[in-house]
Design a protein around this nucleic acid. Sequence first.
DNA 1: GCCCTTAATTGGA
DNA 2: GTGCTCCAATTAAGGGC
Length: 841
Amino acid sequence: MASHHQGGADLLSRIALNDNKAGMEGLDRDKINKIILETSKGSKFYENELKKEQQVNQRIEKMMEQKARITKEQLKQAQAEVDKLTCELERSRELGRVIVHVDMDAFYAAVEMRDCPELKDKPMAVGSMSMLSTSNYHARRFGVRAAMPGFIAKKLCPNLVIVPTNFDKYRAVSAQVREIFSEYDPHFMPMSLDEAYLDITEHLEQRKHWPETMRTYHICDAKTGNDADRSAAESERDELSPVLFEDSPSSSPSLSGADGKAEVFGTSAEEAVREMRFRIEQKTSLTASAGIAPNMMLAKVCSDKNKPNGQYRIPPERQVVMEFMKDLPVRKVSGVGKVTEKMLAALGIVNCDQLSQQMALLSLLFSGTSWHNFLHISLGLGSTCIERDSERKSMSTERTFGEMSDAEEQYSLCRDLCHDLAQDLQREGLKGKTVTLKLKNVKFEVKTRAFTLQYAVCTEEEIFAAAKDLLKVEIDSVSPQPLKLRLMGVRVSGFISAEDKKPLQRSIMGFLQKDGSDSGSFTQCAGSVLKAQEDSDGASFLKPQSTEMKVPSVSDLSNTNSGTDTTSYVNKPAVLKPSFKISTQVLQFLTCPVCNTEMKDVNLTAFNNHIDECLKGSAVDNEPTHLDAPKEQEELNSKPPASSSESRALKSSSHDPSCNEEKPSTSISVPLVETDEDGDFKTPFFSHRTKINGKRSVISKKKMPVCESSCKASLTTTHNLEAVTEMSSDSKGSSLTCPVCSQPQSTDDLALFNRHVDMCLNQEVLLEFRESHPPVGHSDEPALKSVRGQCKNKNNNQQQQQKRIINTLGSSPLPPSKKIKVLSTKHTIDKFFKSNAGQKV
DNA sequence: GCCCTTAATTGGA
DNA sequence: GTGCTCCAATTAAGGGC
């Protein structure tokens, strides 16, 4: 019944104008929707939206059926539960914090208008013909808003000026604004370039005692700003604000007075926030809106209330909070989107009062987490502690393009994406085990396909090895028809945590960095290795690396993934060995990477012997080796077209991040402190505050299964390699006998030989470990099998192998102790425009 | 059949 | 001519016991 209420328009709720935005009240919706509809109709996008809409309608139907089956008894019981929980929540209601949400008004558009006066009185938007990110208030009167494609906006407003994004500029302005934020709350939480939460409780406490002089701000503040910007901005400000925001109250009333040179702000929360907005306007010539409330949920709603260029406060009184919530449409609450809105509307719920009334029903129709969230909302509860985002859980890149049906082209694009993603991952020093491929066909249908590897990856080759297999399955599944794509994306997730990385890395890094210097020394080491090796015996074993290793072919990688040639990328003795060598020159004393004992004045042989002993004793506790190959996909491993792999190989050689002297330093030393490209998190230290209420449910992560954490005996046979390599060096080029398996190796390549020995050693250690540690489950079986297989398998590809070795070296992360937690922000629009800036679809 | 894990999808910002 | 990135929650499916 309710679902028919809106009649035909109901079918179009996804396409129709979303006027849930400041500056869009009282528009002629029907007229605007008609234009949007006419422009969209018949397109593939439209068809897909219709389909999705119908899916939602089906969900609603199901829900209504379920509702019809609910008995009075059930409802009564549900109500009891709701009441009980309500009581508990009420008891723990926290009103003591003063939370502020600040939001710049039409941010990107405002920046562009500030810098280009001709735009001031025109309807304009920032973005492109395919997508807009912001519009000014002028344009909003036409129904033009963010997240609307430019070509539709043009239909709504033919005179609309579309300005391309200037991301650097927004970032710079954002940095200026954040400087001000940090004065009110050093731990403020940026949500995007134009938005942040602050907890000003402490600030207000101090502010009470401040003399007036500390609360006085002058109107001409040329010192802090950019002088050039300033003069222009100053002269424009008086005109700018009225044009932008016709009837809005000014953040600084005395500003308009010609003689007002300074303004004194009070000590209340309102005054502090007004002061903050005043300073933002002085510094950037842009206005901001703010909400002040006892929690984040309310503050966010409040900042929208008097937008633009206004603020609103909910005082910390339960009664007032409840009063405020009563009439609030649920859609205004962050987290309630158009689907939830529609589902609730079907139950007759539009505002929060109704939400509250129907809570028992909701508890029977929605999941626990969902209705708990509804309950929090209806009670006006939210998080009272500003916490920076936690560690990121995934990283991805995706691209939209014109229809692409050629498989070769698709593989090539996939590789490009992997390349970009690898760079991003390495910039942050991340490695993940799950690779996900995302595809959107020309009908706008989205598919994701994931594959979890046995080891964490971060290089282009490793990611592509998995991604291309996923792609192949999809291509084959529609063959002989081609896949007609309009978007492809690659994501890496399942990052190995600091915990998991710890054991080995701490010891090795500790060993390499005994002098206490930071990661730079490791880089230096790596560089020195190359150099020293060339100097000492210009022949060898590193030399081929610098030339050939850069060009692994796709087929090599496909081997990698098929389980025929996969070994640990992580503990690469062949790499560590030379590093050790150099280290002894650089560092005065040595630390055993296994037991952490410091050893002074020992020669390498003695040191190696020590490690040998140590390793025998404590191999179990060390880092996983992931000897196991990724799941077999034999039949999937056919090669992508040669031409594509070749062309890409060339590209990859020219800027592979891991095979030159400079890049490793990027992945080691840059990542964790102040890298953020978006200008975020310049402040490396954040204090932790406990959440009191309104917190999100956190599902505690399970520890690694037994097989993961224990069966990867440390196959860090680094030390033994010393001997092996030396031997190899002596007999370079001739036929070699493996010191482990005693089999002659018909290769004249030292690196390859080293690799063989490496594997043999790994097998030895594993077998030894297995004998002394009866299996807990059978989970370590595959690993064992795989090692055995590897030892027999001799069709290794030396280029790839060497490449991996270097990759390993290049991407070794910092020891955990040196790490500053990486915290992520999600700049949704920001990221989009950054990556989209250079390309036209 | 339950518990756990992974994969895939969805909704939201 | 309708975007990019990330997260949390939900659902589906498969393996182990």
